[in-house]
């Protein structure tokens, strides 16, 4: 019962972060500030959801799998944000051939 309540609360908090990330993606003025949506809001949102789902996991293997997914998404988000930012910095926000 307590586990269920914790799951609901954590997932709900995660959804708030996802909503914030989408709002940031839509409302922030340029690429560099929009990166926040990717690297901060959504990764925290996923972390909270995963933390919530851990209370429903069947065993240690499932918990480890969920943790692995979070670590991988963190790594992917960090790398992607870094590379998109660097490319935008060196090539400009608008390319000349499109």
């Amino acid at each position: 019962m307590i586990a269920n309540a914790l799951t609901v609360i954590l997932i709900f908090a995660g959804l708030v972060f996802f909503a914030a990330g989408t709002a940031g993606l839509l409302r922030f003025p340029d690429v560099y500030s929009r990166l926040h949506a990717l690297t901060k809001a959504d990764n925290v949102g996923l972390g909270l959801v995963i933390l919530g789902l851990m209370f429903q996991a069947g065993g240690p293997a499932d918990i480890l799998k969920l943790l692995l997914i979070w670590v991988l998404v963190l790594a992917a988000g960090t790398t992607a944000a870094h590379m998109v930012a660097q490319r935008t910095w060196t090539h400009g926000e608008f390319e000349s051939d499109r």
């Binding site: 692995l68 960090t78 790398t79 870094h82 590379m83 660097q86 490319r87």
Partner: peptide, 17 residues
């Protein structure tokens, strides 16, 4: 590819996994 330590570091995590 982008220079710097980030991409090789990520690869070292991702490829074995």
């Amino acid at each position: 590819p982008a220079p710097g330590p980030i991409l090789p570091g990520t690869l070292r995590l991702l490829v074995p996994v």
